[in-house]
Amino acid sequence: MSRALNEHQLVILKELTKHRGSLTSLLRRMSLEHGTSFSTLKFNAKRLKELGLIELNNKMACLTSAGRLIVNILSDDALKQPDVSSLRSCSVTLREELVELLKPINGFHLTSSLSCLDIILALLEGWLALGLLNVKALILSKGHAAPALYVVMCRYGLLCERELKSIGELGSKLQTHAEPGASIVAVPTGSLGQGLSVANGIAMAMKMRGEHGFVYVILGDGELDEGQVWEAASTASSHGLDNVIAIIDRNNHQLTGPTEAVKKKEPLRAKWEAFGWDVAEVDGHDHEALLRTMIRAELYRNGRPKLVIARTGGMSS
């Protein structure tokens, strides 16, 4: 149910945790403070009542238990759980593991794995450990960052140490580029620019069957050079795929050098917005911020696909 809420409804729920008094006076005050029209707020308050999240007693509004639960899940405090802060030290350990893991194979795309490690860690923590994310499928469009996925999978018991160490060996199930079967990805990648199209296909099938959940796809910034990414960006918005959540690992680097020197990516946010996406930008190494952004992306079922630009690189020139 919380997945059907829009931003206005969430703000109203939040205000109600502090407010005692008539709903009308609350909405009038919010209208002045937030610059949102009174009628919009009134409409959304009515919707919250229909959803059973708020109740009215003599025009006095208060949260129902379901409403309180949702506010708790959404509040920043709820997300600041020990598990998330523990990810910081975990991330350091995993980085060291990655470096060691890739030493025998000439540091295979090490930097590409390092830059998206925290994104994958936050995603799997939110999905597998905390159960806060409703992930139906994961696609690693930047398939060469598979080692990052593998070390994180190992942490969550989805791979054993011995399997992990066999990466790239002849006969090993762990290919250097992501493949389904051995890892949790939905499709094989490695050739760039293809993941978002697949995410769209899965998301369409889910809509056809009325299934809940979200398709996550992690893209590199370099692969945005591929035309297919933009074909897919347009498909997602044209089909109203608000069950697609794309995360760009904005590390500012691609094979030949800085992204802006090879082929300009900026203005990145404006481009995706122009393609009909809701865009959020976040520090791609801040687990809390990443997880919060993903949760919010799942909440706004407004007919628009969601993009998270995760800033993971330093220099951008």
Binding site: A137, A186, V187, Q194, G195, L196, S197, V198, A199, N200, G201, I202, A203, M204, A205, M206, M208, V215, G227, Q228, E231, A232, S234, T235, S238, H239
Partner: peptide
């Protein structure tokens, strides 16, 4: 059960791959 992706064949194949992954 008809998906129009516009004039974009590469995307079309990717979308089909996704539909197949999801059991269609």
């Amino acid at each position: 059960r008809f998906v129009e992706v516009g004039i974009s064949e590469q995307d079309m194949v990717g979308v089909a791959a996704g539909l197949a992954v999801a059991g269609m």
